[in-house]
Amino acid sequence: MTTNGSTNNGDVLLDVQGLVKHFPVRHGILQRVAGWVKAVDGVSFQIRRGETLGLVGESGCGKTTVGRSILRLIEPTAGKVYFQDKDVAHLDKPELKAMRKDMQIIFQDPFSSLDPRMPIGTSIQEGLNVHGIKGDEADKIVRRVLEEVGMHPEHARRYPHEFSGGQRQRIGIARALALRPKLIVCDEPVSALDLSIQSQVLNLLDDLQKEHGLTYLFIAHNLSVVEHISDRVGVMYLGKLVELADRAELFANPLHPYTKALISAIPIPDPTVKRDRIILEGDVPSPLNPPDGCNFHPRCPIAVARCSQEEPELRRVGSASTEHYAACLLVD
């Protein structure tokens, strides 16, 4: 079950192998399939128990689709997702239900992620009820998780519209936390929040991880946020993972030209520092019709002729002391 050459030492909680999700594009009255949006096109990575893997990329690069495929909120087209050594895609209904207890998600939009007609306590309790925890015990858990995320237990009877965005995001976290999951997929959990609230929520996630030994897949488009919270970082471009390394290594020594461009775009709060910004030309190509060869070659500042013919694999690069993977023909 090793994909990226890393050793399978039993510490691996989630192992994603060659995940593919293509959405059909339908046209006309007969709803014929006119094409396929290659949202995720062969992504492999592993998450170890207790770590945070950051997944970054522009909007539309497929990072959210990766997160939802792992939870089987959407059915992947191909590839395998092993969670605790079980293939998520081939679980039957009772097995899937049991797995859902261990794997939760926090959403981006704190306004649409809570049912407006349901008191927040009921929303938090929903998962407990599904898994057979009811009555006083469920109430106790709701009170506890509300406290854990820094809310008053008395808030349980209120409706979502009575709370601010940051409070709602905490409620969303409480809902995910109630089932005591092992893995939480954080799908851009702070990008809809004000900057000051962002850091509060990030610190909360950090504290909860330490307290409960949680494992996070942290999806974001903001590099500074990812740098703050992640142990390792994966960079996605047009449905593919282009680089994966330890946080420090990736930010200090980015190897893929796309990652280099991204990192050079992080603002530095010091006007005297002179920077070499790498400005990418053009737009992200349509995932309906991705370019041949390397997906990135039309915008790549260092592309050569063979980049448009050969498709680079994600492979181990750089010095032997660090685990650093990149999908670029020109890097070794």
């Binding site: 998600i105 959403f107 049912d115």
Partner: peptide, 11 residues
């Protein structure tokens, strides 16, 4: 997203 949340909870 609350529909996805309910699904993820196993409802």
């Amino acid at each position: 997203e609350f529909t996805d949340a309910a699904k993820a909870l196993g409802a």
